[in-house]
Simulated assay, not measured.
Amino acid sequence: MIGTALGSAARRAGIDPDVEQSTGHMVWQVIGGWRGIMESVLPLLVFIVAYTSTQNLLLSLGLSVGIAALFAIVRLVMKSPPVAAFSGLIAAVIAAGLPLFTGRAEDQFVVGFITNIVYGTAFLVSALVRWPLIGIIVGFLVGEGVAWREDARKRRTFAWLSVAWGALFLLRLGVQLPFYFQGDVATLGTVKIVMGLPLFAVVLASTWLVTRRLYAHRG
């Protein structure tokens, strides 16, 4: 079931309500610590700096993918699962494909736009149809499946949390698209970094705090 899969993925990422840990520790674990931050930021940052200073698209994309490949090798050496090791590299290669084809540096961000549209829409639609994704994930994390749907307070809370996640993804899209249409690669990349992990961490921490409070008296 999709709920079981989402719950298992959340536990592997470090989101486990049955484990006593601070909110800050949980968020730090989910984003992967300093290595996770570097893997998320460095490839894009190298691309922005290289392209802004040289205007050489091929060189900039090559450096970005090269950094991602280096991180993949490090993960393999540290015995990470192959899927985790190569996920960042695959994402970097896919993102580099379109600008190589079009010759437009700003197209490096199109995959991110599509991701924000898909995730943002999925969270908002799930709340509208009263099957909020946050509820599905939390339900299988705490072992109650979809029984939370019988509790009006939980339904409302999970719906609003799902709306918050949907708003996060669509906010990124709304802020970044104008810079894309202007062809402003430097500003677009900077905004993407700023609206990446920092905003993700804030919404994740808020979701964790609200959910822990919701289940504070769970037997």
Rank of each mutant, 00 (worst) to 15 (best):
G97P: 04
I67A: 02
Y119V: 11
A152K: 15
I134R: 07
L100N: 03
R153L: 13
V74C: 08
A159K: 14
G139P: 05
A95G: 07
G135K: 02
L124N: 08
A127Q: 02
G135I: 11
L128R: 04
M78R: 14
D107K: 11
D107G: 02
L63W: 08
L76A: 08
F113T: 01
G88H: 14
A95D: 00
A152E: 14
A69E: 00
P81L: 10
G88F: 13
A127R: 03
Y119C: 12
G112M: 03
I114P: 04
I136W: 01
F109A: 13
E144C: 01
I114C: 06
S87E: 01
A92T: 09
S87W: 07
A72C: 13
F123T: 05
W160R: 15
Y119P: 07
L168V: 03
N56I: 11
W165G: 10
P99N: 00
G143F: 12
L128A: 15
A122I: 12
M78H: 12
R155S: 05
S60K: 03
R130Y: 06
S60P: 01
T157Y: 09
A96R: 02
V93H: 10
V129P: 05
W131Q: 09
R75I: 02
A152S: 10
R155H: 09
I114M: 13
F158P: 03
F113M: 13
Q55E: 06
V93Q: 06
V77L: 09
F123G: 03
D151P: 10
S64T: 14
G62A: 15
W160C: 10
R153N: 14
F113N: 08
A68S: 15
R155D: 11
